[in-house]
């Protein structure tokens, strides 16, 4: 198995600084966050431009070019509800270091994002849901199969569909956590890839507690076979967990300075 793939989440228009930079087409705040995350060990960077109903195509093209040209063609995960903007971003995307990721498709109204990924030779994050959260693993499995068959029929390779089990918040759905981990193991046993946005689980918890809960569940999920996660690589505890897990799973050779590389 390859090393765990960290998708850095910090270029997100929910952050006021990033939103302002995107509106003003100001490179510096975006590049600063890109570099910080890469220095911390991110492999992919997520670029979330929000719903971007207006000018989304121009904005995504600008962001893709900006980040790739300044960061050695880092591979990107294009994240918006505006499908045309994702496609515009892919049209200027350099694949030398990895395919673009379409974030995201589901079995409901965003199923067509699988088509988008298929016609652009991209990876799709496929949420195992239709509308709202899946009630149980039978439901997850049903949506997973639906999306898998859809993608394969369009000529995609199974390895280009990364299934997201949907992480559920612990405060309120504590009893659902084990089931979610079990689903990751099922995907792994089926030879399928999985990805998740781990920080959802700790929503509403005190700031100091969140990294502890997030990193512990991440370690458990990696052991179940999780391939990638969208997370904040600048949160030290998270990257320490990822790096230590890669050592324990023998994905990379141990050296005393493993946390520094």
């Amino acid at each position: 198995m390859g090393r765990f793939i960290v998708i850095g989440e910090r270029i997100h228009c929910i952050s006021p600084a990033i939103r302002a930079a995107m509106e003003a087409r100001d490179p510096e705040p975006i590049l600063r966050r890109a570099r910080e995350q890469l220095d911390a060990g991110a492999v992919y960077l997520d670029v979330n431009i929000g719903p971007a109903a207006k000018n989304g195509e121009d904005l995504m093209k600008w962001a893709v070019r900006l980040i790739q040209e300044n960061c050695d063609n880092v591979p990107l995960c294009l994240d918006t509800a505006n499908a045309a903007a994702i496609e515009a971003g892919i049209s200027v995307y350099d694949r030398s270091r990895g395919k673009p990721i379409v974030n995201s498709a589901n079995a409901g109204d965003r199923k067509s994002n699988v088509d988008l990924a298929a016609r652009n030779d991209a990876i799709a994050i496929a949420l195992c849901s239709k509308d709202g959260v899946p009630a149980n693993n039978d439901e997850r499995q049903e949506y997973c199969q639906e999306l898998l068959e859809h993608g394969l029929a369009l000529g995609m390779e199974a390895e280009d569909l990364w299934f997201d089990p949907l992480c559920l918040v612990i405060k309120g759905m504590q009893e659902k956590q084990l089931e979610m981990l079990e689903f990751i193991r099922q995907l792994n046993d089926m030879g399928l890839s999985s990805v998740c946005g781990i920080s959802n689980i700790s929503n509403g918890m005190p700031k100091a507690v969140r990294p502890i809960i997030d990193s512990t569940e991440l370690a458990m999920a990696i052991e179940c076979g999780l391939k990638a996660a969208i997370l904040n690589p600048c949160e030290r505890r998270m990257m320490e967990t990822v790096k230590a897990a890669d050592i324990i799973l023998n994905n990379t050779l141990y050296a005393d300075s493993f946390l520094d590389i």
């Binding site: 050779l253 141990y254 050296a255 005393d256 300075s257 520094d260 590389i261």
Partner: peptide, 14 residues
């Protein structure tokens, strides 16, 4: 010592 081999390379690259 495979781990030291890697470590030495890391230290030199640093």
């Amino acid at each position: 010592d495979i781990n030291l081999a890697k470590q030495l390379n890391v230290l030199i690259s640093q």
